[in-house]
Design a protein around this nucleic acid. Structure first.
Lengths: 239, 239
DNA sequence: ATACTATGACTGACCAGTCAGTCATATTAT
DNA sequence: ATAATATGACTGACTGGTCAGTCATAGTAT
């Protein structure tokens, strides 16, 4: 019940604010301009709180699951009152969907920038797997993906969004790389071209395993992915 | 509190009952002997209801998830009153764990009977994948496995049980088959021996995919598994 | 002064778990 | 065989607690 009115750490991004102030034509000698550590403006605070709520929601949804997570806890963790959540999101479900979308959309954008280059197909796929490690597996995005796996069934709109925006595009992109590999003779057999899902399955397995068994049977995921690469392209040529 | 009566199913009593009836020398035209459908005894009904509750629970937990499933609905679906559930299970969580265990234990037993034979390694693995199709993917066990994937995180005891009884044993068994394949020169590279998870990952993917995307993007799982076999052992030799 | 924003006590629906009572079945007595 | 008695499986109305969502009040920026 502790009345926590702890202020959120005042932070850095008042650049926009400065610009706005310039345009607003406030008197030069205004009392606020005298202070160089400007208090953050309303829009900034709003964005900060929104982000804090989303992060807190990720924590709670990840550990308890959607249905069992309490918005009181999300609010407390985010350092706001429960009502504040409703100033940013329509209801619990909207919070959840926004959470997933907001963490996913930058991901989609990143995937777009194809790193085609003139690398061998094996290198391309290797990059892709490394990308998974650094951009997903070792980040909070892993938890978001796990949320999709565990809760997606009950949120068909979300599942479809995820399929259209990530899965379908991803599979298409991978298929092109694999088709190129076959055309160049770097890959024998069209199994992977027909089912690019086979290339991605171990990534899924990593996420599932980490959620269920890591405590008592940790798995060396980088090594597993290297082995997968070997399986697909044949043993790595040792230097 | 909650003195729950031990729910040991002693369902063989009815066999003795039938035998006793034969020996009792009742008149041939006796009313009971005329009916070939013998009225079930108490123990039978008890077992029937327990099974009905478990099946109903699988339905409800699968569609709503553990936290959101209502025991009222489970009871209604099973054709019993809510209180009856508590005559068979301590609480909601015990019902869930019993559900998973009861569907899994026959599965474990089945896995034990190793079909070693003198088949090629490829055939052995092929059998294994077919087994997955007929014994899991096309049965309700698929839903049980999905429940472990989606809810296991919140039931550490269950996750560990599943790991010890199914995953660890399964991986060990598969590893032996794969090691044999390498030793016989039927498989090149030890990637799969080091990470048998790679062989199983597509099975996981099948279950996840069917839960999330089947409505709008169905996947031909038998074909996917055949492609996986090709990927592992090389293109199938066409007749 | 005024508009915008945050708060947290409150409400009402919901649901896991309980328990006193009912009734079909099993056991014992006549 | 029949009646009397015992058993325990089953029922469902009820309780106590929980929690999503609301809103009157308080606070803050401009």
């Amino acid at each position: 019940m502790a009345t926590n009115r702890k202020a959120t750490s005042r932070s850095k991004d008042n650049l926009k604010r400065g610009a706005a102030r310039l345009r607003s034509g406030a008197p030069e000698a205004g009392p606020e301009t005298a202070v160089d550590t400007v208090a953050p403006g309303r829009a900034d605070r709003r964005a900060e709180r929104r982000a804090a709520i989303l992060t807190a929601a990720l924590d709670e949804f990840s550990t308890r699951g959607f249905a069992a997570a309490r918005l009181d806890d999300v609010a407390h963790r985010a350092g706001v009152a429960k009502g504040t959540i409703y100033l940013h999101f329509d209801d619990k479900e909207a919070l959840f969907q926004e959470l997933v979308r907001s963490f996913l959309i930058p991901q989609v954008a990143m995937m777009e920038q194809a790193p085609v280059g003139e690398l061998s197909s094996r290198e391309l796929i290797e990059r892709f797997l490394e990308r998974f490690l650094t951009e997903i597996y070792t980040t909070r995005r892993r938890e978001v993906l796990r949320l999709i796996l565990t809760e997606g069934h009950r949120f068909p709109a979300l599942a479809e969004f995820y399929y259209r925006e990530v899965v379908a595009r991803g599979i298409a992109a991978i298929r092109m790389v694999l088709a190129r590999a076959v055309a160049r003779g770097e890959l024998s057999g069209d199994a992977l071209v027909r089912f690019p899902q086979l290339l991605v399955a171990p990534l899924l397995m990593s996420i599932v395993w980490s959620g269920l068994f890591d405590r008592f049977a940790p798995l060396d995921i980088p090594a597993l992915l290297r082995a997968h690469l070997d399986l697909v392209f044949g043993e790595r040529k040792t230097t």
